[in-house]
Nucleic acid binder design. Structure first.
Length: 211
DNA sequence: CTCACGATCGTCT
DNA sequence: GACGATCGTGAGT
């Protein structure tokens, strides 16, 4: 029996609520029939035309960011230096808000992800540019839906964070109140966070789950 | 065409 | 924590 609708496209939820609820969900990518996946442990909310840190600030709309203006569930990928950044649009068409996926805890295909990165352990997926490379995410995925293959989020395979921490977004200097806004969400005690890891918990910050 | 600038990463201190 | 690498985008001439 299927649930009715993913929270990802629920119009009653704010971008902040979606950023929180994404923690623990399974991000999945299939390349040439091979799956890699990981549970999301770090997100950031970019809350629209008033958010000076967002690409869509002041209703800015350039060719690379048209996906931001598409409906909830649309994937927005952009290049930062040599890296790809993965975002999921959260609101209705014409309301450019999104969540940046910043880190995952590997689930399936860990060895393949380490090979793609030429890095072991936490270094494979502990950052927005790292996880896209590890999972083989490419510009082909841009403007596709996060609800269907080959790049999708499985909200049924969700783990439950023991505790969620809020902090300032990474790499947002000189943006007034938006520099200090607490719009970054992390699973407390998880070792795969991109920065400012606190003490790592033995359960990686997940509630014990009975299957 | 030119040029300034990053929602980063890796390395070094 | 600081800094250099490195390159596509977008604004300006």
């Amino acid at each position: 029996m299927k649930n009715s609708m993913s929270f990802l496209t629920d119009p009653t939820l704010s971008t902040v609520e979606i950023a929180e609820q994404l923690l623990g969900c399974l991000l999945v990518k299939e390349v040439d029939g091979v799956i890699t996946s990981g549970h999301i442990v770090e997100t950031e909310a970019y809350v629209g035309i008033e958010d000076q840190a967002s690409h869509s600030y002041n209703s800015r709309k350039t060719p690379r960011m048209t996906a931001m203006y598409e409906p909830a569930g649309t994937i927005y990928i952009y290049k930062m230096h040599t890296h790809l950044m993965l975002n999921v649009v959260t609101k209705d068409k014409g309301d450019p808000q999104a969540v940046l996926i910043r880190a995952i805890e590997p689930h399936a295909g860990t060895q393949l992800m380490e090979e793609r990165r030429q890095k072991q352990g936490v270094e494979a997926t502990s950052g927005p540019g790292k996880l896209t490379k590890a999972m083989g995410i490419a510009m082909d995925d841009h403007e596709t839906s996060i609800l269907k293959p080959s790049l999708y989020i499985d909200t049924h395979e969700k783990k439950s964070p023991v505790s969620i921490e809020r902090s300032k977004r990474i790499g947002i200097p000189n943006k007034g109140e938006w520099t200090d806004a607490l719009l970054r969400f992390t699973v407390k005690g998880n070792p795969y966070l991109s920065r400012k890891k606190g003490q790592v918990r033995v359960d990686n910050g997940w509630d014990a789950m009975l299957d």
